[in-house]
């Protein structure tokens, strides 16, 4: 049985790396923003909630 796979070019690999880093940074920034706003909105109550 023969399968065909595609080997990305150097330019494609480089571009994918750049996109991956950007997505990672954006996600980290998003998490930080949501965390920071949650703390600001809830204040000390953020650790006083009953679960």
């Amino acid at each position: 049985m023969e399968i065909e796979t595609v080997k990305p070019t150097e330019a494609q690999l480089k571009a994918r790396r750049s996109r991956s880093v950007a997505i990672a940074l954006a996600l980290v920034a998003f998490v930080v923003v949501v965390y920071a706003v949650s703390v600001v909105r809830m204040g000390p109550a953020v650790i006083e909630r009953s679960f």
Partner: peptide, 9 residues
């Protein structure tokens, strides 16, 4: 056994 053909994108 698999024969792999690698194509340049």
């Amino acid at each position: 056994f698999l024969n792999r053909t690698i194509l340049e994108d």
